[in-house]
């Protein structure tokens, strides 16, 4: 236990140093940040405006009210934002594999995956948090979701789990580069899929697709199932009041699986010729 504690303190110390360096890098290039702060929130707020339009025209989507949709959209954008902060590097793993960029991580006494994500921690990701928080709070107000202690803990478990599911999937996709030896940039493509499947109720898609997105690729657990339960909407699967905890569990399992596959992939790492 003491050993785990000291390991945690060690990684925390290194992480703080990495965050400090990331912030200092932003200060070096101040003009970049303005673009992000403006463009990122606008993108998501426009997306949300589209939902508002659809709901007003048709009176709801698949039995979801406007407020409930806002809640779902908010959770989706928030988990997206956290995954952008901590795991966006996964999108570029192929580049690291092909260019031999893992070399320097391998010669340091830290987990390679940890270094991969935290050496270039993306503090810009917080610009995605802004629209997420706005829409989420709006949804809470509309649906009367109260901030009791148990609800707060539940939301935290949900967001951690959802972020881990996203991150785990980024890693699993990125890790394929160890086998294909090519630097596929799948970022935009994954973002598209996640947006379309986590911002709106999954129940509006054909059943076969729902099954895939529940069991094969656990995207349904990012937002749809736990939020349905919190909103009191019935779905094909009853989580028995444990929805948010199942999401957390699925997130942890996805991340562990991703870590294991990454380790296998890393043994095939070939660096880059000089």
């Amino acid at each position: 236990m003491k050993k785990i504690g000291s390991a945690f303190a060690y990684y925390l110390g290194v992480t703080m140093c990495n965050i400090k360096m990331a912030l200092l890098t932003i200060v070096e290039y101040p003009s970049n940040i303005l673009g992000w702060v403006i463009s990122n929130p606008i993108q998501f707020l426009l997306g949300f405006a589209t939902i508002k339009f659809v709901v007003e025209q048709f009176g709801g989507i698949n039995g979801w009210s406007y407020g409930q949709l806002a809640f779902l959209y908010g959770i989706s954008v928030l988990s997206h934002a956290f995954s952008m902060i901590f795991f966006v590097q996964g999108w570029f793993m192929g580049f690291f594999v092909i260019e031999g960029e893992f070399d320097r991580f391998l010669t340091r006494p830290l987990s390679v995956l940890y270094q991969f994500f935290f050496t270039n921690i993306n503090v810009f990701g917080f610009t995605d948090l802004i629209p997420g928080i706005l829409v989420f709070l709006y949804g809470c107000a509309k649906t009367g979701f109260s901030f009791t202690a148990s609800n707060m803990v539940g939301i935290m478990a949900l967001l951690i789990g959802a972020t881990l599911i996203r991150g785990g999937i980024y890693i699993l996709l990125g890790t394929t580069s160890f086998w294909t030896k090519s630097a596929n940039d799948f970022g935009q493509f994954v973002q598209e899929i996640f947006d379309k499947t986590t911002m709106y109720p999954l129940s509006m898609y054909p059943e076969a697709m729902q099954l895939i997105l529940t069991f094969l690729i656990p995207i349904g657990w990012v937002s749809f199932y736990p939020v349905s339960e919190l909103m009191g909407i019935e779905t094909a699967f009853s989580a028995g009041g444990m929805g948010v905890w199942i999401t957390l569990g699925v997130g942890i399992v996805t991340m562990i699986a991703a870590g294991l596959v990454f380790r296998i992939g890393l043994r095939r790492y070939e660096s880059a010729g000089n």
């Binding site: 360096m21 200092l24 890098t25 290039y29 070399d103 320097r104 010669t107 340091r108 006494p109």
Partner: peptide
């Protein structure tokens, strides 16, 4: 992780330094 504590590495064409800072 344990063994690399005992080694230092410099590859001429690469750097482990942060370019921006």
């Amino acid at each position: 992780k344990e063994a690399v504590r005992d080694i230092g590495v410099v590859f001429g064409q690469r750097t482990q330094l942060n370019w921006d800072l």
